[in-house]
Amino acid sequence: MNKLMIFPIIITVIQLISFGHLYYIHKYGSGQFPADFIELNILSICNIGVLILAYFLYFKADIKLSIWLVPVLLAAITILLLVVIYIIMWINKYK
């Protein structure tokens, strides 16, 4: 396996484990404290770092590995989900 392919695979596995943990906290966590929302914020901040890394290691690279599209897509979905949740919260605040 190419050494360049290991890095996006590790990032993807970490993202999938984080999504699984976020789902577990959402389903079985405490209802008094929104731990899942806080973890989604932290995960989105980390995924901004993934997007910055992908910019330098995929989009600026001479040899483009299509395996980078998976962590980029997962990062974009996470950030988009957080933005949608913030928009829903903003709309419900002024209803």
Rank of each mutant, 00 (worst) to 15 (best):
M1S: 07
N2K: 13
N2R: 13
K3D: 12
K3I: 07
L4R: 14
M5H: 08
M5N: 14
P8N: 08
P8W: 05
P8F: 03
P8H: 07
I9G: 09
I9L: 14
I11M: 15
T12S: 15
T12E: 09
V13F: 13
V13M: 11
V13Y: 07
I14H: 03
I14N: 09
Q15T: 02
Q15P: 12
L16I: 15
S18G: 15
S18Q: 15
S18K: 06
G20W: 02
H21Y: 06
L22Q: 13
Y23L: 15
Y23Q: 02
Y23W: 15
Y24A: 12
I25D: 07
I25F: 03
H26G: 11
K27I: 04
K27F: 05
Y28I: 01
G29M: 00
G29T: 01
Q32D: 10
Q32K: 05
P34M: 01
P34F: 01
A35M: 08
A35K: 05
D36F: 10
I38N: 08
L40T: 07
N41R: 11
L43S: 12
L43Q: 13
S44A: 15
S44Q: 11
I45S: 15
I45E: 11
I45W: 13
C46R: 08
C46K: 11
I48V: 15
I48A: 06
I48C: 08
I48S: 04
G49S: 09
G49E: 10
V50L: 06
V50D: 06
L51Q: 03
L51H: 03
I52E: 05
A54Y: 01
A54V: 02
Y55T: 01
F56G: 09
Y58T: 06
Y58M: 07
Y58V: 04
F59V: 01
K60P: 00
A61M: 00
D62E: 13
I63A: 05
L65K: 11
I67R: 12
W68Q: 07
W68E: 12
P71D: 11
V72Y: 02
V72E: 09
V72C: 14
V72N: 07
L73T: 15
L73K: 12
L74P: 08
A75T: 10
A75D: 07
I77W: 00
I77M: 05
I77F: 01
T78V: 06
I79R: 02
I79Q: 04
L80H: 00
L82V: 06
L82D: 12
L82G: 04
V83Y: 01
V84L: 09
V84I: 09
I85W: 05
I85S: 06
Y86E: 12
I87G: 02
I87H: 05
I88S: 07
I88M: 05
M89F: 10
M89S: 09
M89A: 13
M89E: 06
I91A: 08
N92G: 02
K93V: 03
K93C: 04
K93E: 10
Y94M: 05
Y94Q: 09
K95I: 00
